[in-house]
Design a protein around this nucleic acid. Sequence first.
DNA 1: ACCTGAACACCGTTCAAGT
DNA 2: ACCTGAACACCGTTCAAGT
Lengths: 209, 209
Amino acid sequence: MTRSALTGEEVLTTAARLVRARGPAALTMRRLATELGTAVTSIYWHVGNRESLLDALVERTVREMGEIRPVGRTPHARIVSVARALYTALRERPQLIAMVHERGLTERMFLPAQQALVHEMHAAGLCGETAAEAVRAVQFQVVGFVLVERNRERSPEQHPSEGELWDSPTAEHDPALARALAGPVDTERLFTVSLDALVTSLLSPGGAA
Amino acid sequence: MTRSALTGEEVLTTAARLVRARGPAALTMRRLATELGTAVTSIYWHVGNRESLLDALVERTVREMGEIRPVGRTPHARIVSVARALYTALRERPQLIAMVHERGLTERMFLPAQQALVHEMHAAGLCGETAAEAVRAVQFQVVGFVLVERNRERSPEQHPSEGELWDSPTAEHDPALARALAGPVDTERLFTVSLDALVTSLLSPGGAA
DNA sequence: ACCTGAACACCGTTCAAGT
DNA sequence: ACCTGAACACCGTTCAAGT
């Protein structure tokens, strides 16, 4: 049986599917060829080599992250919406994001969202270095949460257990804190709450950063 | 020529050196064997396989990060000192940290520093969820900075250039902001400044988070 | 223009055999 | 108890040869 002509786009799509389903390590040229029903060497004609295939995959991810648009009526709401959209998009593509980061393109990936945030900071009356720091604060908040959360998912059994924190003498007399830091935490809620707090304090005159 | 008996410790040290010098991809069992002057298969007797070798490497890194101690007279100063120490330690071992993260041990790695931060937050009068959020805020600040910074180092040519930001209509009339967000930034200073601002606002009553 | 198999230099890992 | 080489199943990549 013959298959229709192979295209670069088809290679890319199948490669992306492999990465999302089974991680970057599962993306071998031979496995990809089997998946596509072609000889390994055909892939090379279309995408060069493995490295440039990964580059193309990353490029596509960066494009997708660029489609984030603010929604809401107040600057506060619009900033929160961008941060939430970033957060969601990052969580949906953990492996691809890791690949973007490995290639040093994280900043470029964030650029459109960053420009949107700058716009909203201006609308809220911030400017100059204050606005820049506010933008970064939001960005770091998102990245930090995604990282911590992913870490919890990966190793649900080995992150600091409540027990361990209870043993710590400093936490002994503050159970609310121990609970908040150990967990299972409702990260979704925690993200919303602390993002809201952050944006509020950033936008208030003489605020946090 | 014979060599003295191989030990697990020796394998670990040489492996760590290889990773720090040339990245995790350079750590192949065969290369390691050559470096050690033994047969590949000897390594297996001492450390099991590549996976458990990496586990041991990661374990060692986690231990090293646990040696952070706060210094200074005020809670503010002691919190800042912990954050700075974390920041420095993370920057010194980028590849090993990445491996820790891959294995989902980032939180465990941060645990000692986290406990120190909890202690200082209590000393500063915070407790419960407020203290927990403050601890996380500091932690995310550090992680966020290390990530952004490492990204800049990796791809000095492709992060958003000043030119690009200038083209953006939102930044056109705010050169100070454009400068702050593009770069090259004095990240060392930026880290100090924004860490100080963060801690100040966290510790002030009715503060940021 | 597109696809192929053979071949090369690398991997990690197992295992029977040595001392 | 420790070390070895041979062998296996995998890699990515090149290249001459096909259509």
